[in-house]
């Protein structure tokens, strides 16, 4: 493994799961061997959690690679990528591990994969025979082994590893709750459709220390579509929460980059004015609906105060929505809020919270709104959560990209460092008048 592998110190900067996700994604795109040491050294417990293992395994499958160390608790991951293969993939950490993070890890690879090469027949064969699973098992020789072989019409699940955004310790302590086991692999007939790559992801859709899936659907995906000229669709079939997860969603790439071509560079530097804000709070399961009302009320107080400033001659319309999830639309108990602001130049910024155990709805709503207001005040085109998520696309692109951001977050600095370590991309931070401000980035 180690011959010629790029070494990433997993304890550097943010030192959590983001390093792992970005590094394996870039390894799969560049074809570079990768060794990550001291994985999640800044988390307790350190090492890979279930959701990280699943993410590593998922990307390994997409790039037809060989992985080592993709096991829970592992502090070293080694990946020898092969060639990215478009396909229909399924990943299930078997916990409330965040599906949003799995989608994040897989998306850059799938956007470059091109259309399915055999019209989906290849996937069907995998589902019936489990051949790919067996082959991958033989190739990778993962420590955990493959939990299941595929049967006709069933998802083929593979072995998995770990998880997280900043610190998913809480979700991961519970361990797998699905009796069918955790895994990431290609799937058979369950995801149908045309000749496009897709993901079927199970786990937590609204988990602490990770973006809620609504954020990915309403902010990341629309922004990526707009900036890169690709087409993505997400369908959330069922929300899932800590500790049992069991949420389910599909992501379909209906227009990717032509194989052999690069992602385009982009410029997102004009924020414009806020033209609308949509605030949506939901409750599910045992959490009563008045919790979402509390979230909305406290969020409204923050927004009212902000938009009552003399700076706003005409405040934007703000729409409030309280949603009561049904047993069909959500599994388990949970609540959350997302505030989405859209601007006249097409920027989308959001604040969000998943209700923590014991947390008051009013506190979650206020915090989410304060996040959004803070990001609007900064004047950037993206919120604090999107800035680091776009770094990998800038790094892979052909040409020079520019992104107007608020103060760089630790996650952004980490993503930049990983991108520069794994690829020949070079990042700079500039003030509005073009002066270097690199001390903030480094």
């Amino acid at each position: 493994f180690d011959g010629g592998a790029t070494h990433i110190d997993g304890s550097y900067f943010e030192g959590g799961g983001q390093v792992v996700r970005n590094a394996v994604a870039l390894a799969s795109i560049t074809g570079q061997k990768l060794r990550i040491s001291d994985v999640r050294a800044n988390r307790r417990p350190s090492g890979l959690a279930y959701q990280h293992c699943t993410g590593v395994e998922l990307v390994t499958r997409i790039c037809d690679g060989v992985v080592g160390g993709a096991a829970v608790g592992s502090t070293e991951v080694r990946l020898a990528p092969g060639t990215i293969v478009p396909g229909r993939y399924v990943a299930d950490p078997g916990t409330a591990g965040a599906t949003a993070l799995l989608a994040q890890a897989a998306l850059p690879c799938l956007l470059l994969a091109g259309p399915l090469q055999n019209g989906g027949e290849e996937m069907e064969a995998l589902g019936k025979g489990g051949g790919a699973s067996a082959a991958a098992k033989e190739r990778s020789g993962t420590e955990s082994g493959f939990e299941q072989e595929g049967k006709a019409g069933e998802h083929v699940t593979a072995s998995v590893s770990l998880v997280d955004y900043a610190d998913d310790t809480e979700q991961e302590e519970a361990g797998p709750s699905h009796k069918e086991g955790m895994g990431a692999g290609k799937e058979g007939s369950a995801v149908t459709g045309g000749g496009f790559s897709s993901l079927l992801l199970r786990g937590g859709t609204d988990a602490s220390k990770a973006p809620p899936i609504d954020y990915i659907k309403e902010v990341l995906f629309p922004t990526v579509k707009r900036l890169l000229g690709v087409e993505l669709e997400m369908h959330v079939k069922r929300r899932g929460f800590y500790p049992k997860g069991n949420g389910e969603l599909t992501v379909t790439i209906t227009k990717s980059v032509e194989r052999g071509k690069c992602l385009p560079a982009f410029s997102l530097t004009e924020r414009g004015n806020v033209t609308s804000v949509h605030v949506r709070a939901f409750t599910a399961g045992a959490l009563p609906q008045h919790v979402s009302e509390e979230m909305l009320q406290s969020a409204r107080a923050v927004l009212d105060s902000f938009f009552s400033s003399p700076a706003f001659a005409s405040p934007p319309p703000v729409q409030y929505e309280s949603v009561r999830e049904t047993p069909e639309s959500a599994f388990g108990n949970g609540a959350g809020i997302l505030l989405l602001a859209e601007t006249s130049t097409g920027c989308r910024l959001a604040g969000s919270r998943v209700l923590e155990r014991g947390q008051k709805g009013a506190d979650a709503g206020r915090e989410a709104a304060e996040d959004l207001v803070g990001d609007l005040r900064s004047g950037g085109c993206v919120d604090r959560y999107l800035q680091d998520q776009l770094v990998v696309f800038m790094a892979a692109a052909e040409g020079t990209s520019r992104l107007l951001i608020g103060r760089p977050t630790l996650h952004t600095c980490t993503a930049v460092w990983v991108a520069e370590s794994m690829a020949s991309a070079r990042f700079r931070l500039l003030t509005h008048d073009g002066q270097p401000a690199t001390n903030l980035l480094r």
Partner: peptide, 20 residues
Amino acid sequence: FGDPGTESWILECDGAALNV
């Protein structure tokens, strides 16, 4: 709203032109 220019920066990147 806000005060663009005091708390925002341009993140600029020369991409690596990666493909597969």
